[in-house]
């Protein structure tokens, strides 16, 4: 079994990839993918910690991850439906075109 630090490093890198994708990508679908990557980093973190205490797997961490996958699916579904509607209005997926609202 790998040490917990290996998993936590993976969590860190996954979060950074997701944050980069959300901050700098122009395609709206890629932004949603970035969101999903960070969520999966958090899931991985839960899974890694769930094996930490008793020697065997803690049920609580596993069940939280199952619920969080469902919730993440819901969020992305709503997000994709908004992307679809935005495409109808703007005829593009470039998020920089969505600038009609002023600051």
């Amino acid at each position: 079994m790998l040490a917990i630090h290996v998993y936590l490093t993976a969590v860190l890198f996954l979060s950074l990839i997701g944050l980069y994708s959300m901050a700098f990508k122009r395609n709206m679908i890629r932004i949603l993918l970035g969101l999903e990557i960070i969520l999966n980093a958090a899931n991985l973190s839960f899974i890694a910690f769930s094996a930490r205490f008793t020697g065997q797997v803690d049920l609580l961490g596993q069940s939280i991850v199952v619920m969080s996958i469902v919730l993440g699916g819901c969020v992305v579904a709503i997000g994709l439906s908004m992307v679809l509607n935005a495409y109808k209005h703007y005829k593009t997926l470039d998020v920089r075109e969505l600038r009609r609202l002023k600051w």
């Binding site: 959300m22 969101l35 958090a42 890694a48 910690f49 709503i78 997000g79 908004m82 609202l101």
Partner: peptide
């Protein structure tokens, strides 16, 4: 509403995910 909604969704969902990440550390 679509433009505002997409912005709201990305930011607020990011917030939810960050809470989840922080929660995983507390769980750990």
């Amino acid at each position: 509403p679509i433009e505002a909604g997409f912005k709201y969704l990305t930011m607020s969902a990011l917030g939810g995910v960050l809470i989840f990440l922080g929660m995983s550390l507390l769980y750990g």
